[in-house]
Design a protein around this nucleic acid. Structure first.
Lengths: 356, 356
DNA sequence: AGCCTACAATAAAACGTTTCACCAGAATTT
DNA sequence: AAATTCTGGTGAAACGTTTTATTGTAGGCT
């Protein structure tokens, strides 16, 4: 016949022989409590294994110490480490985090955003599924929202993102310098602002190199087929540059299936670096986004907003790093005297991007 | 001069001209409410953008519909997709999930486990940092706990894990069949039960092949150096088999740095498959763990426990798939007549593991 | 000795819900 | 027509906290 209910503050009070108010005072470190009463309370807490009920505590105290995080997809390693960093930072500031994933689905994102309100978070960090995020944010939502990574169509948001255009431009310029005559640029969809900015960055910086864009779609078998057709068609482009995570995976896999070798048959570069890109030989030239920094800035900004500091919406663009690796060596066409590039590792010096 | 507070059920009641009880009844789909009253309420809800306060709702109704998830590290892709699947399943059953990461730190895990109690979850799914999880579970915790992936030292837990021994054994047997004379087995630490089970599986199935174990440690610079020394030492082992995610990354990187080629200089296989392993050429032979299935089973079991079904603790071992790829071709020593194996792709048929 | 202050502890109200007991009126039965 | 059962709705209690106002007591000051 055990009292098998999770202990409440009342049980602690009874066992310690004090009032619930006193227990609460002890637990919240209120100064006006005598040492021996504090000890009695702490003993009772320990014996019962009591922990406060967050729901009730928040309900009464009206202080949230809770933030929500919405990401498009947890299995994308970039978002995973974004969330992981965020979780760590929040913990340091004594905040709890409620994390949800939208599974790459705008409708589900809207749903999640609606639902997350019932947690009464003091603020939200959102990586939106697409630019139309403004329409999906619940209208009666008064907590501050910080967007990250993906750029909204509408203005008026706090935003932490990366320097898409210049970073993609740096890759394009690099390819141009290496002497590639043409580059096929691949991306899921230009309706995603990030992809659009990157493509525009490429066009602006391509120099003499001819660039062309192919949209693959997102989870689009049709697009995958168009890509394969293009890669079977001759002449091949001198270089491939894929502008987002999903497209990079698809492209790399397709090349392997067809039997194209990098950089023997064509050069290859990617926006969005993944860990395997420095493991494979040759390494893949890639733009590395500063995920941790993005999380830090987003959290810092949200914290400022949550603790009441107003002011105009802030947009901050973080600098990406450009990792030049063996997948984009000097073009074979250019280097007339050196034809044996195909199977070699080609080590270029790393060259982090810096504007002007 | 706006009423800028998030709307409560009382405001809705006032605006709709009904009692709060009626609003609650409408919102919870109680049948005894007339259509016109329901409409009035729903209108008011829409106009105010009201959503229920989960904290208050749970506090009063005492039904949780909330589960906690504790994983060692969100940035590990395997755990990320575990969580992602779980989140999806929970949503289908109308449960909320609170996810926390222990950052590969037993102490922090204990902390998280303590803290997560204040959410009053109806149940917990835990991937423990190590086998000593039993000591870290808060004593006064009455909600059901399902462990996943990692095997606890103590008995008496519900557990969903994989078939470590046989799966690792299948790889060992494959390597033996390919004619490799010796295999260096790498793992973070035998104190992790998973690693130990795998190593034992290897020993049991190695046949004529000589096997040897090297512990690398976890985040241990010293272990990394020992690995490098071993790989610079001649003769090289015929094959390398790394038993966990972190070790695989370290090993693969070290091989690349030293300039060893796979499978030219040695064969390589990994427990724990990552997406890049089928992208690179040659592909990496690996044991693929059924993460989604693990999540499904864990959720199903937890759900059963949460809805009151008792019974003895259950242990279930899921079958892994073994993906044979080009990194473990027939040994050059064995195939005297076919010496040009090094740079070639070597396509073996996939051979999912099946015991006996 | 009387009075005020400071202090320690508490009782009770409040937070936003859900639920339970109750009630008025309509519909049905006798 | 009176008595009974439905029906659709409500007031108020309760959930586990924190907070505010209040109490009682001890000590310091005239």
């Amino acid at each position: 016949m055990s009292k098998s209910r999770t202990p409440s503050i009342k049980m602690v009070a009874d066992r310690a022989g004090v009032s619930v108010a006193t227990v609460s005072n002890v637990l919240n470190g209120k100064p006006t409590v005598s040492p021996d009463f504090a000890k009695r309370v702490n003993d009772a807490v320990r014996e019962l294994g009591y922990v406060v009920d967050l729901g009730a505590s928040r309900l009464r105290s009206r202080k949230a110490q809770l933030a929500g995080v919405v990401v498009p997809d947890l299995t994308n390693p970039m978002f995973a480490s974004f969330v992981s960093t965020l979780e760590h930072l929040a913990r340091l500031d004594d905040y709890d985090l409620v994390v949800v994933s939208a599974r790459n689905n705008a409708e589900e994102e809207a749903d999640r955003l609606r639902k997350i309100r019932s947690w009464r978070p003091a603020g939200l960090i959102v990586i939106p599924c697409d630019g139309a995020i403004a329409e999906r944010l619940p209208n009666g939502f008064f907590a501050p929202v910080v967007l990250a990574d993906r750029i909204p169509d509408a203005a008026g948001f706090d935003l932490i993102a990366v320097d898409n255009g210049p970073a993609a431009g740096a890759i394009a310029a690099h390819l141009d310098r290496q002497g590639y005559g043409d580059c096929l640029v691949l991306g899921s969809s230009l309706s995603i602002t990030n992809v659009r900015e990157r493509w525009e960055g490429v066009r602006a910086a391509a120099g003499r190199m001819h660039v062309e864009m192919l949209e693959i779609g997102i989870d689009d078998a049709n697009g995958a087929q168009r890509l394969e057709e293009r890669l079977r068609h001759r002449p091949l482009p001198g270089a491939l540059f894929s502008l987002d995570h999903g497209t990079t995976l698809l492209t790399y896999r397709t090349m392997a299936e067809i039997g194209l070798s990098v950089p023997g048959d064509l050069a290859f570069a990617s926006f969005d670096e993944m860990e395997w890109m420095r493991l494979v030989a040759p390494g893949i030239t890639a733009v590395r986004q500063p995920v941790e920094e993005m999380a830090e800035q987003a959290w810092a900004l949200l914290l400022r907003r949550m603790t009441g500091s107003g002011g105009k919406p802030v947009t901050r663009r973080l600098r990406c790093a450009v990792e030049i690796r063996g997948s984009t060596p000097r073009s074979p066409l250019e280097e007339a005297g050196n034809t044996k590039l195909g199977g070699e590792k080609w080590k270029l010096q790393d060259e982090p991007y810096s504007p002007e």
